[in-house]
Design a protein around this nucleic acid. Structure first.
Length: 214
DNA sequence: GGCCAGGACACCA
DNA sequence: TGGTGTCATGGC
């Protein structure tokens, strides 16, 4: 059957229940997790997150106070430890200027917030959208690999890159932050089950569905 | 032992 | 704008 974005979200929610994403106890933990998970599996990222929690309680000030060698050692299990350590320092140093007042930052930058986030070292399109959605409560479609795979299987063509999907699709105006957060969680949870291997999609509750963009 | 996992960036045409 | 190589780790 034909589904709009909103109907797709509703169907996934009905079938799967709320995703509970992003699983974290604080904004800082979401930010750290979003950086550690870049091109890495969650097992590796979680190892690094656990180490950082023991060392800093995931407190930004304590993280920024770590000697660089110590930070490298803690981030190492997540891979790309040079890049990710630098990204953590870049993001939290910036946030520190605003005393980690997330609503104030969102208010200051408004719709320019995404482009501001993209200037931070180690923050690309996907991480920026994750931060917008889960840290700043700005509903955003996170056009990651799972989302592109799912949308492609639902009949949308030309989604080879992040930008291609991000340009093509934006969330409907009636999407609340909670809905956008849950939607991304549902897509990734779905992907982990049904895209290994790809053929399993044909046995899923979305088999045969087509996505219509407006 | 090769392959992959919820990217970002520099460099090139 | 779009394509390619590089950055690192741990589990399967």
């Amino acid at each position: 059957m034909q589904l709009t974005i909103t109907q797709l979200y509703q169907k996934m929610l009905d079938q799967m229940g709320p995703s509970g994403w992003w699983p974290a106890d604080s904004k800082a933990e979401i930010i750290i997790g979003a950086i550690l998970i870049q091109n890495t599996n969650w097992r590796n990222a979680d190892q690094a997150l656990t180490g950082l929690r023991q060392a800093t309680q995931l407190d930004p000030e304590r993280l920024l106070a770590l000697p660089i060698e110590k930070l490298h050692d803690l981030v190492r299990p997540a891979g790309f430890f040079h890049n990710k350590s630098r990204a953590l320092i870049s993001v939290f140093s910036w946030l520190q200027q605003f005393n980690y007042n997330y609503p104030a930052i969102q208010g200051k930058y408004g719709i320019q917030l995404r482009s501001r986030l993209l200037k931070l070292r180690g923050v690309g399109p996907e991480t920026a959208d994750v931060l917008l959605t889960y840290v700043f409560d700005v509903p955003t479609l996170i056009a990651d690999k799972y989302t592109r795979t799912l949308f492609t299987l639902l009949g949308i063509k030309g989604l080879r890159s992040y930008q291609q999907l991000a340009r093509l699709v934006t969330l409907p105006d009636d999407f609340t932050p909670a809905m956008a957060q849950d939607f991304h969680g549902l897509i990734d949870e779905f992907g982990k089950v049904y895209f290994h291997p790809l053929a399993k999609f044909q046995k899923s509750f979305l088999a045969g569905d087509q996505l219509v963009l407006k």
